[in-house]
């Protein structure tokens, strides 16, 4: 069974069809890239999957169970981790506390009034940080980290609930080219080892073609191509869309 199954998804804003009739699946251990020119409906599509937008029509299933219309926090509980285009971390906490926070929430202990958070799930948090190469910076405040390091912290946080699926919105945005490759390589290594499905959007075609197992292409709200990187690269419509819109990635 596919980890994520999207069927006939559609959303309009005031009569403008942002996404229409989109269907695809993501399999365990697979990195699926969602690409398309600006305004193609990538963000809308993404936000319907993570719960920030409610689809007008269509179905979203996670491991065969519908998650359509659930709130982001409920979708997370079903085993979906997220990273954001602009990193979202807790600036007043240290690196390890950010991860501890996710672990505390995963175990539904956020209402605890007495335990000292600093002592909770330290080992688990450290091993996640170790995984993303941030263990040596675990006691630094998040507010002072370099951007690339913040992205790694986000990845560790996203992995904290042992997700089946990772939704990564522009995971390498704002990073230097060298860092991009390194971060995606790390991500690919981790998800393959843990058999996690990944859906990511990305502007940088080098990153996409280097790491995606499969690519789906969105244009004007519709899915215009789907397949292995080579096939998509060779697809006439895709070429037309990217060249026609002035894109040359």
């Amino acid at each position: 069974m596919s980890v994520l199954k999207v069927q006939d998804l559609a959303k309009s804003f005031g009569g403008v069809r942002a996404v229409q009739g989109v269907s695809f699946t993501v399999e365990a251990g697979e990195l699926l890239a969602l690409i398309g020119p600006n305004g193609a409906g990538k963000t809308t599509c993404f936000n319907m999957l993570n719960g920030q937008l409610r689809p007008d029509q269509g179905e979203v299933e996670l491991g065969g169970e519908s998650i359509r219309g659930l709130a982001p926090r409920e979708i997370w509980r079903k085993g979906v981790g997220r990273t954001f285009q602009i990193t979202a971390t807790f600036a007043s906490m240290t690196v390890i506390e950010n991860v501890q926070m996710a672990l505390v929430s995963h175990d539904r202990r956020t209402l605890g009034l007495f335990a000292r958070t600093a002592g909770l799930y330290r080992k688990e948090a450290l091993s996640l940080l170790d995984l993303v190469g941030m263990a040596d910076q675990s006691e630094r405040p998040c507010g002072v980290l370099a951007y690339g390091d913040l992205k790694r912290v986000e990845l560790a946080v996203a992995l904290a609930n042992g997700p089946r699926l990772l939704l990564m919105d522009e995971p390498t945005a704002g990073m230097a080219p060298q860092e991009r490759i390194a971060l995606m390589a790390l991500t690919a290594e981790i998800v393959r080892a843990r058999n996690i499905a990944v859906l990511f959007t990305e502007h940088d075609m080098d990153v996409v073609f280097a790491h995606a197992d499969r690519i789906i292409v969105l244009n004007r709200g519709e899915l215009i191509a789907e397949g292995a990187p080579e096939a998509v690269r060779a697809n006439a419509r895709v070429q037309q869309v990217y060249l026609g819109s002035g894109g040359h990635h």
Binding site: F84, A88, T89, F90, A91, S92, M93, E97, Q100, M101, V104, S105, R109, T110, L111, G112, L113, F114, A115, R116, T117, L120, V157
Partner: peptide
């Protein structure tokens, strides 16, 4: 405690 951390988490980044 986790509750206080959770509040700060919400204050720092509601999205996260």
């Amino acid at each position: 405690a986790p509750f206080g951390y959770t509040l700060r988490a919400g204050r720092d980044s509601p999205l996260r």
